[in-house]
Nucleic acid binder design. Structure first.
Lengths: 311, 311
DNA sequence: GCCCATTCTGTAAGCGCTTGCAATACGGTC
DNA sequence: GACCGTATTGCAAGCGCTTACAGAATGGGC
């Protein structure tokens, strides 16, 4: 008799019984016994934004395809909340954790290290860091935008940025712009760098503020497409022409960037690729392989919202 | 000696030791022993969309405040995937499940019932259903829009809708428009009801299609703000004036609706309230209280993108 | 038909907690 | 100081699975 035949002979009736009785394995029991939960936790600064949505989807798909479940949490940009959420994830003994950016309290890192839970930092890239990272360099991405604007003649450049406190991405983007300007002997006017909570309407009001100041910038670099779209909408309301009167650039290349009129010059950030690679990185860790950090390329997408400086 | 003093005397050094040793309770062990996981699962048709983002955030916050963790999953509008995801949630022995809409396979409902896992259907409302529901009536919401357009003289009304297969919200919205028109002896031209995947660019292309047909509608009811914004952008590109040449309405009142120019007439759906009440509903179930279904009110927000029919 | 290398099956221990019960300590009362 | 009800502690069982190991069955080679 074939050695497999027994297995086969038994498998069918057993599977029938499983169906019949409606047996569903008990994840917690399995997790307890096997010492891994097949759950991955992802902690975002905010869940409300569109931005992270286009990351969660692919991440969830990639993990799900390998039998992993995704838990999401948000810190609301608050380190206290963040620690609580990490603790929560650890308490649930997630097999791995996805974090956004590098700025997290020591306590968070300690907790993960102590419990030996692999984690990945995303949405950011730092050379020579020993932390696992899958992301792009916010500094050079911002510098790309700045250099492009300098190339087409802009010198009076303003920024609408997210809050930099605890947000290394925002910090790096400002630093990137500042460095790019410096390299061309242009100084970034710090009073033209405004920080706002990420939203369309905040982008609009920041734009209005900048454009009603005594001297107007000729170009505005926005730290997110949301800001940029808010600015474009506000420009329309104020009768300011884009890009003739002012160039506006975004960050992320969301659907909106291509759709809006004038279409938005922006930086395309590789969110779904980042999600896939992040999942892969963790899965490698789970399999005992050394996870690979990776710097992803971003791309400047020049569209209608930017052009030659008018003065 | 005070009976409490022992407790107090012991508590401090014990808590110190907990800190010291970095003890983190083991969720799986707790779940196994206590027979509840303190995890709630939410299953969305899609995670990519902005739409559900503004629901997940408040939901997660509300649950987190009560010590519950949120697991998200997406079905990609595929019943097969949906069943697998529900199975997954059940396998993880979530304490409760959040589902979107009413259309789910019997198998899904059976699984939840058999394992006695409380669930809530959201984003939808049906009178006389015995299923727990927290949502709004898509049919009457759509009828509100249609009645408004009829009131301002429109008779040639088109729709850009999501796919109706497996999506009761889309189905109901079309039905609502059809019924409202019928009641005024206007017939909905079925060839003017186009179904598309939810996205900005699909809204744009559907708009172009409708506006290049031999006879043009004077108003277009969109099943989502995303469609409507796509349509508005496309109108700008085609040199079609909104609302002078065509009125456009949306659904959901996302940030974009107020920001876009012309600003969008739309239906405000109470997403964060829905999230809070959904959480409350489940928490009530967990505490053995009878959960309360609730119909939420939606509101027609008339802005610039709609107006009197021109002919 | 015997032996061996496999594959398969059965069994027991234990993952880290909760829960209920029995045992004990406690403070107050008479 | 004996007694009582209450607060606290200690202990053991068990949640539903995995895992490791011992033991049995299997089929092929000689």
């Amino acid at each position: 008799m074939n050695p497999l035949s027994i297995r086969v002979r038994h498998r069918l009736p057993i599977e029938a019984a499983i169906q019949e009785l409606g047996y569903v394995p008990h994840g917690a029991a399995r997790a307890l016994a096997s010492r891994h939960s097949r759950i991955v936790g992802a902690l975002f600064p905010s869940l409300d934004s569109v931005l992270f949505g286009s990351f969660i989807g692919p991440l969830q798909r990639a993990l799900s395809a390998q039998g992993y479940t995704l838990v999401v949490a948000s810190s609301d940009y608050d380190p206290q909340v963040e620690y609580r959420q990490v603790f929560n994830l650890v308490a649930n003994r997630v097999d791995g954790v996805v974090l956004v950016g590098t700025e997290h309290s020591e306590a968070c890192y300690d907790l993960l290290n102590q419990k030996q839970i692999p984690y990945v930092l995303t949405w950011t890239w730092q050379e020579n860091s020993d932390r696992p990272m899958i992301g792009f360099c916010n500094r050079s991405a911002a510098a790309m935008v700045a250099n492009y604007l300098l190339d087409v003649g802009h010198r009076d450049i303003a920024m609408i940025s997210g809050f930099t406190t605890g947000n290394d991405r925002a910090t790096e983007r400002i630093a990137g712009v500042r460095a790019a300007l410096s390299a061309r002997h242009v100084q970034l006017n710090e009073s033209w760098v405004v920080q706002r909570p990420f939203s369309l309407s905040q982008g609009a009001s920041a734009f209005r503020e900048l454009m009603t100041s005594p001297t107007r910038p000729t170009a505005i670099i926005c730290g997110s497409d949301l800001f940029a779209c808010g600015a474009i909408f506000e420009a329309a309301r104020m009768g300011i022409r884009v890009p003739e009167d002012v160039s506006i650039t975004g960050f992320d290349d969301t659907d909106l960037a291509a759709g809006i009129s004038p279409s938005l010059t922006t930086i395309r950030t590789p969110r779904s690729e980042m999600a896939r690679l992040t999942a892969q990185n963790l899965l490698d860790s789970f399999r005992g392989q050394k996870p690979r950090s990776m710097e992803l390329k971003v791309e400047l997408v020049v569209r209608e919202s930017s052009g030659r400086a008018c003065r």
